[in-house]
Design a protein around this nucleic acid. Sequence first.
DNA 1: TTTTATTACCACGACAGACATAGTAATTGC
DNA 2: GCAATTACTATGTCTGTCGTGGTAATAAAA
Lengths: 108, 108
Amino acid sequence: MIGSDVIRGYNDTIILYLLLEAPSYGYEISRKIRELSEEKYVIKETTLYSAFTRLERKGYVESFYGDETNGKRRTYYKITESGREYYREKCEEWRVTREVIEKFICKI
Amino acid sequence: MIGSDVIRGYNDTIILYLLLEAPSYGYEISRKIRELSEEKYVIKETTLYSAFTRLERKGYVESFYGDETNGKRRTYYKITESGREYYREKCEEWRVTREVIEKFICKI
DNA sequence: TTTTATTACCACGACAGACATAGTAATTGC
DNA sequence: GCAATTACTATGTCTGTCGTGGTAATAAAA
């Protein structure tokens, strides 16, 4: 039940995290976000797919088609070295952001 | 040096925090954000003033003119009860958001 | 056997928030 | 007298999110 505004700056980071270990595809990523966040964040389909496009345009992921013989064809995404680097930077930025926001939180 | 995307969801909350104790105005709020964040977050003027407009439209703040006899006239903003309530909710949401994001951070 | 649910993806357009740019207006310090 | 600082506003652009709706395949239920 997190609003999209507050997590907005981290959608790309979340997706990249889920690609660190192995390539994946839209539906699986979506499911993993829901599960890992314990239903607290459910990414919208359109948000997810437009994030993939953006990440690919920036060179942080590469796409390829799966070789499924049944079911609809999947588009898989694989994180690039530059994507890993970007992820690391975002993790660093997160620590700073968290500290800053906490200075303005909870005075009630 | 925080990107605007990552703090975007908290601009309103940050402003409301700075109004909890006493009414204030644009330039002062801007300075306090810079100081409290130790220069890590500098809000853009236009972002700030458009936030005031939004907060007032939503009934979270009320504006009035200061009685400065010299200098340019200031527009002061005062937090409303509904603004305080909204601030409290945002603080709660922050805790959830932080926990969720941390599940996707720092696996490198 | 038709319908429904689930998996899987994409196109299009609307909207809101952040920001660049530029302008107005007054005071203080050099 | 001119720059720097204070204080605010108007206008238009850009990006990310999301609503709506469509395509396509399979499995299970009715």
